[in-house]
Design a protein around this nucleic acid. Structure first.
Lengths: 120, 120
DNA sequence: TTTGATACATCATAATTCTATGTATATTTG
DNA sequence: CAAATATACATAGAATTATGATGTATCAAA
């Protein structure tokens, strides 16, 4: 897992957690590697979450009571499935709403002509 | 200049530079304080750039040859106007395009139901 | 005259992601 | 069968970037 995201890594900041929560709510339970692949698929390879970013984030969400884990043995390997806790579900709603608001505002600033409008 | 942005500060990461470049291209020249006020106005007070964030960013863009300055005396005060260099203009196009792409992708991931689509 | 707005600056801190590195199993391909 | 690639997790240190705190100074209004 060594390839680089197409986007400046800084743009992803603050959105990684939202992405994880959204996918987990949608799919019920997922394991780390699966999340990376899913994001890669949906984004057509444009967003590539590094494992060095993903696992620390998952551990933090776990510590904060947003997620729970369940270990499943696959052959000799242990696979860790993550699920949203009830707290995680409301947290998901919050951060998705926040992101939506923010993107709307950003749209107004960056993708709109603000020169002509005399404000009000 | 002490109030806090409505949004998690992490969401702003990577976008502050884009915002500055967009506003400067649109308005020709602006000074720091003016940029803060403009962003506040356009965003209805939702994005409040702190001076501790703005000035270091402006200095960095200056150092990188993205901006030039022009000092104007207003009474006894010196006001620093910033303008895009030619390099800055192409940089602006690049980062705005990058942000647009990223937001489109993020939309696909976070605001779309990805459960049903069997992904071709 | 004193409060708040205007206007700039910088340092230390916090937050977050990335790079690099490590371990180990499973599968595919030459 | 051997080697390469994919699967799957983990963590420490580095880099980036916005913020908080602090400082200086002018100007207008109450």
């Amino acid at each position: 897992m060594y390839i680089c995201s197409m986007y400046s890594k800084e743009l992803l900041k603050g959105t990684l957690g939202v992405i994880i929560l959204k996918l987990l709510e949608e799919n019920g339970k997922m394991y780390g590697y699966e999340i990376c692949q899913k994001v890669k698929d949906i984004s057509d390879g444009k967003i590539l979450i590094k494992d060095g970013s993903l696992y620390p984030t998952l551990h933090k969400l776990l510590k904060d009571g947003i997620l729970t884990t369940e270990e499943v043995n696959i052959g000799k390997r242990v696979r860790k499935y993550y699920t949203l806790t009830p707290k995680g579900k409301s947290e998901k709603k919050m951060v998705v709403q926040e992101l939506e608001d923010f993107m709307e505002t950003l749209n107004k600033i960056v993708f709109t002509d603000n020169k002509t409008s005399p404000a009000l």
